[in-house]
Amino acid sequence: MRRGKTDALLSVRGVSRRFGGVQALEEVSFEVRPGLIKGIIGPNGAGKSTLFNLIAGDFPPNVGEIWFNSHVITGLAPHAVAALGIARTFQTTRLFEHMTVLENVMVGRHVRSRTGFTGSILKTPGARAEERAVQARAGEILDLFGLDRYAAHSAGDLAFGIKRKVEFARAVASEPALLLLDEPAAGLNIAETRELSSLIATVKNLGITVLLVEHDMSLVMNISDEILVLNEGRKLIEGAPRDIQRNPDVISVYLGEDECSSSAT
């Protein structure tokens, strides 16, 4: 076993990923300490979602390693990564549209339950008890997210903001050690964003470490304990929100790619 012991929950080491001619990530390294919220910002195409996909096991990095809880998780399939305690949401919500909200969240309990084919078919007492427990816990999660009144609604019929919240709840239902949130505030209105912010804080209080990709600067800056800035696939800088806000490189990256933010000068 290679040495990799740190006090970090997640440790990304020299990770690169290429898509055809596009170098989406290049030599990115950073760590996430347990119990914190780490924000990741960067212009469009900086490689933020690619980073999440690498951590979650959608595809392997071309070079580099990813450590989680002192295991190497590079090359593991998504379900194996999830089983180790990493949950995620997607930049565009991916709900099980033809299932109810409750069922969606119950699927979130998959890693926390174990009934297999035989148990299901035979409907063993253990399987039944577990099913009841899953349902009860999913109900609690719905309550926590204020989604209880949508429990029986078909997920496909929900309003956009609610869908986002269901996806968030579904990920939290697996009680992960690390939660990856990819632009959870995108498309939400001000009230919804505020609610999201407090939900993220709640989740942190549950002991879940959060890695947050977000374009909404006020949200990330307020809520994150640390921030990592990516630009064109490379790590630009890493530090406390205050320092990031003042950093001239960060400002120029954002100015360079987006004229609307020129008011920041």
Binding site: H79, R88, F90, E103, V107, H110, G119, S120, E130, S174
Partner: peptide, 26 residues
């Protein structure tokens, strides 16, 4: 029995969105 169980739910999840199902440990 299969359909109305954890396994059935997982199957429907795969049907609904395979990558999301994988991300939840299925």
């Amino acid at each position: 029995n299969l359909v109305r169980s954890r396994v059935g739910r997982a199957l429907r999840a795969i049907h609904g969105n395979e990558s999301a199902a994988g991300s939840l440990g299925i």
